[in-house]
Nucleic acid binder design. Structure first.
Lengths: 225, 225
DNA sequence: CCCCGGCTCTCTGTATGCACAGGGCCCGTA
DNA sequence: TACGGGCCCTGTGCATACAGAGAGCCGGGG
């Protein structure tokens, strides 16, 4: 009955574990990814680890270093800008499609939730509830777009974004503004206004990128405090 | 000295071989991809074949069937439309970036070549010269955009497109029109007109999709003649 | 003291072996 | 004859074994 399939395959577990560790900066950019070490740490053989590493490379989360050996992909401002460019191209399009094809009720409900949610650090230190809500909006957009190729192209971009987000500081002012932007997007989709949904997404990504660039600049190697 | 690195790794050879066979319809949609059989046919062990199959799955060229076993991804009209949607989102954006960042000389030269090329079936039965020219334009756009994430997202889409193209008929009228459309795109990028480049790309993809839909409809399972 | 050459040693890439699970087929029964 | 159950067998997923290549290191020579 679980929504996400169990899929207890070792290679899948390895992929998710490594991806999450990279996103959480537990594996910092530049960290070498040695197969034997990872296999030992994850309690499996090299074979599924190799498969997981291949997926990380295709996601752009791991890069070949020196022709031999892999490392966690570095993070610099150019890379952040590039990721946001692709994200803008795909998400504005997805927002358009969702506005045309989505169920208005779903997005109206999400807009209401976004209006009611709090972004204060006191109530929710990690902002898990807020980010979960945003993730649900993303998922609803993907589902409404109904395009598996779009979702597949967006998935690695979203993973990169999650890593970038950890480097940027979650200051309350930005979070409150982002909540309003997300609410605007959800409302536009609910209203079936494709242009507005696309433009609101563009605006949101612009502000998000500005904030990320300003904050990532000083923390390209070490995780946030 | 080769432009494309040799990389004689078996897994890479397997990936390219299978991908090309799928694109050429030598492996028709629905064909089961058994590891042992492929390993024997390609003259290697199952290990690199497994790696190649994993990449094909992540590209969307192979799909799991029945929980166990893989098959060449099927092709239907909805899928073609979905691929073109993603292609439109990414390529219009890439064209914009190329117009802003690209070297005008490169694209002016490509526009001239596109103006001079012939699309007659008599001179070039497989239209290899023409498609090679288009591929060079795509590569130039990717290079000018200078965004590895964009290029990575576009690569599997372009592979799908190549397979779709085989199902559509190459009638001379469409090819001549496409050549003009491509020339317009190249000229717009050379002129640094981002809007025009994006819109010309949109128009081209619209016509290309219309043509593909009209022709793929009757050949979803068998390769073209 | 610095530089170069060879050696070793680790790490990747590939091959092979093993176990489990799912599906198909055959046989028995109603 | 049609249906159900159980067995076999193929095929995947994982583990392990093997070979080659590149990097680092140590020693010798200038």
């Amino acid at each position: 009955m679980s929504v996400t399939e169990a899929a207890p395959r070792a290679s899948e577990r390895a992929y998710r574990a490594l991806r999450d560790e990279i996103v959480r900066w537990e594996l910092a950019p530049g960290t070498v990814l040695a197969e034997v070490e990872l296999a030992a740490r994850l309690g499996m053989s090299r074979t599924p680890v190799r498969e997981a590493l291949a997926r990380l490379v295709s996601d752009g989360l791991a890069v070949a270093v020196g022709g031999r050996g892999l490392a966690v992909a570095p993070m610099d401002l150019d890379q952040v800008r590039d990721v946001y460019e692709v994200r803008q191209a795909l998400e504005t399009h997805a927002a358009r499609l969702a506005a045309r094809r989505g169920d208005p009720g779903v997005f109206a409900a999400l807009a209401d939730e976004l209006a009611a949610t709090t972004t204060s650090a006191d109530a929710d230190p990690g902002h898990v509830a807020y980010y979960d809500l945003v993730a649900r909006l993303d998922a609803a957009v993907d589902a409404a777009a109904g395009n598996p190729y779009l979702a597949a192209a967006l998935a690695p971009v979203r993973t990169h974004l999650a890593r970038i987000r950890r480097a940027a500081q979650h200051d309350p002012a930005r979070l409150a503004a982002a909540a309003v932007e997300h609410r605007t997007i959800a409302a536009a989709i609910a209203a079936g206004d494709a242009d507005l949904a696309a433009h609101a997404t563009h605006v949101h990504l612009h502000h998000s990128l500005q904030h990320a660039v300003a904050n990532v600049a000083r923390t390209t190697q070490e995780p946030p405090a």
